[in-house]
C-alpha cells in the first residue's frame, strides 16, 4: 500500500512540476519518503499535498532540521487524518545559504516548529509570518544545532 501511495505522490508532483524534480523516492521503514531540492519546494506543491483528493495530508506532525555538513535538510512528517497515511518529505538546501519555503502558509502547525528550526539551525523560511528566535534569546550568536557550532562554555558560565 505504501508503495502505491509513493507512486501516486511521485506521479502527482511530476504532473505538477515536470519530470525529475524529485531527487529520490523510496520507502523508509515501510513509509513513503520523497526528497526534493529546495528550489522545487513551492507553494503549489505544498497545496497539492494538502488539498489533492487522494493525498489530503492535512496534519503536519513534525518539522526536523538537520545539518549534514555538505548540505542541510528539513524533513516534514505529514499525516492524513482522513485517509490515514504518512509521508516523509525531505527538502534539501545548500549549506551556505539555507533557504526553504515556509510551510506555515499551508500548515499552521509549522509556525513554531519552523521558528525552532530557524532558531537552532539557522535555516531561513521565506513566507513565514513571524520568523524570529523562539527558544534562545533574541541576541544569541550562532545556531547551536549546526555541526560546526562551538559551545563557548566560558560565556555560558559552565566552565
Amino acid at each position: 500500500m505504501s508503495q502505491e501511495l509513493l507512486d501516486l505522490i511521485v506521479e502527482k508532483i511530476h504532473t505538477l512540476q515536470g519530470e525529475e524534480v524529485i531527487e529520490e523516492a523510496k520507502l523508509n521503514f515501510e513509509k513513503p519518503m520523497i526528497i526534493l531540492g529546495s528550489d522545487h519546494w513551492n507553494l503549489a506543491t505544498a497545496k497539492l499535498l494538502h488539498d489533492e483528493e487522494s493525498l489530503q495530508f492535512d496534519f503536519l506532525s513534525c518539522v526536523t532540521g538537520v545539518d549534514y555538513e555538505e548540505h542541510m535538510e528539513v524533513i516534514y512528517n505529514l499525516y492524513s487524518t482522513k485517509l490515514d497515511h504518512y509521508l516523509y518529505l525531505k527538502v534539501k538546501t545548500p549549506r551556505e545559504e539555507p533557504v526553504i519555503m515556509s510551510a506555515d502558509q499551508v500548515w499552521k502547525a509549522a509556525d513554531y516548529m519552523e521558528r525552532e528550526t530557524y532558531d537552532l539551525l539557522g535555516i531561513d523560511f521565506p513566507g513565514h509570518w513571524r520568523l524570529k528566535r523562539i527558544l534562545l534569546e533574541d541576541d544569541w550568536e550562532g545556531h547551536p544545532l549546526r555541526k560546526d557550532y562551538i559551545t563557548d562554555k566560558k560565556a555560558l558560565g559552565l566552565d
Partner: peptide
C-alpha cells in the same frame, strides 16, 4: 546519534 529531533506536543499545542 547524529540528530535527535523531539516533537513535543506541548510546544505545538501552545502555538
Amino acid at each position: 546519534p547524529y540528530r535527535i529531533k523531539l516533537r513535543r506536543p506541548s510546544f505545538v499545542n501552545v502555538s
